[in-house]
Design a protein around this nucleic acid. Structure first.
Lengths: 223, 223
DNA sequence: TAGATTGTTAATCGATTAACAATC
DNA sequence: TAGATTGTTAATCGATTAACAATC
């Protein structure tokens, strides 16, 4: 028997997984029991072939001739995403973004629980935002030893962000969601996602501009 | 002469453009004048071939034997991204996320200026966050006629988000950055970017879980 | 059984990388 | 001129789509 080490999923496929999960949650809630790849493809703007390919990369959850059981499929994709359990989050940086994320209502319902905030500002330490208490960064290691978290969200100024990675990893953090405007690096067994909010706005203006240029060109050719 | 309509850039390439821009801004600030694709590749973890390919899709900004002039290249990519001019933003929804984004310091320095906030809550109307005044959503159309914006940022509850698209588009908005937990749709000449914050956390847990499983499998095979 | 639809392999398409002539 | 490095075409790689046998 070969113990095939599963290949790393491509970024393109990974990005589809939460979308599948959302769509299936929606379909389950409106009473769908069975679902064909064709119907799911229609709703999501994908091809049925791609959907079957994606699901099969993780083992195949359907029945020939019948389609997929929506509840089972949703649960299976939840397992793949590892969201059928709770995840604890620490937010480091209790500024605007950090406080907003700690009060964001969409996380808890998906099993993401913000359990602690950290900040350097003595004026913020001891305060609570969204029911989450702010601790001093100087007590971060001690605090995370008492109450470990899976994921750290970094919302500090860019210049102090990299220095946080080492103590966070030492405290057992396995994933970092970084909103500071730098590309953070860390040990290879820790997943780091660098968000770069302004990049997203730049991609928006790029597509806006691209569309505008294409329309001009297209009108010009027609003349 | 053929008037080739430029092809739509792939998502993969588009995502590299802001990263190029950031890297070049950094290199310019530390005094680089010329730069080879090889050196840029090394710094960004890409191949030199891909970099030359990317730049050439937009016309080619280098000189054989010499490399690229950093300042010129940065400016050229800024033109492609359309960020060498100011963009005005309206934020619709003055809740946690909306207020945080209005106070976020990273936008203005890149030419993204939040000029107005809208909210339904009478308790918020008239207040200011980050120097930006909150207006009632019922006055949105009138207000945007007086002070038009390029981009709308939607940070409302999911159930009211879609209804905002039509009036925003009618008021001249060409791009929508949507943080509400729905996929918004609009006319095809408007660019809509649906963020889905929880999707990003799910992708993080997916990679964390994937890594964990791969390590277990790998250890198991070695036994 | 007949019709439907998966799981899976083969074909196609597009993106990345390699190679090298052009030229600074 | 010799060395360096782009611009650009060709080769390769990987992802998407098509096709169809398996089977509910």
């Amino acid at each position: 028997m070969t113990n095939r080490i599963p290949e790393r999923a491509s970024d393109a496929m990974m990005r589809r997984l939460p979308a599948y999960y959302r769509q299936l949650t929606e379909l389950e809630s409106i009473g769908f029991i069975d679902l064909s790849s064709k119907e799911l493809a229609r709703r999501m703007g994908l091809t049925d072939s791609q959907i079957r390919h994606d699901f099969n990369a993780f083992g195949g959850f359907g029945r020939r001739g019948r389609g997929y059981n929506v509840a089972l499929l949703r649960r299976s994709i939840g397992d793949i995403l590892d969201i059928n359990r709770k995840h604890k989050l620490a937010i480091v940086g209790a500024g605007n973004i950090g406080r907003a994320l700690s009060m964001y209502s969409g996380f808890d319902s998906q099993g993401f629980h913000v359990s602690v905030l950290f900040d350097n500002d003595p004026a913020l330490v001891g305060k609570k935002f969204g029911g989450v208490r702010v601790y001093s960064v100087s007590n971060m290691t001690k605090q995370l030893q008492k109450n470990p978290v899976d994921i750290a969200v970094i919302t500090t100024p860019a210049d102090v962000a990299q220095a946080l990675v080492e103590p966070l990893v030492a405290a057992g953090v396995k994933g970092i969601w970084n909103f500071a405007a730098v590309d953070l690096t860390g040990p290879e067994d820790v997943i780091i996602s660098n968000v770069h909010l302004t990049d997203q706005l730049m991609m928006l203006t790029f597509r806006m501009h691209e569309k505008q240029v294409m329309e001009q060109k297209s009108a010009w050719v027609q003349e």
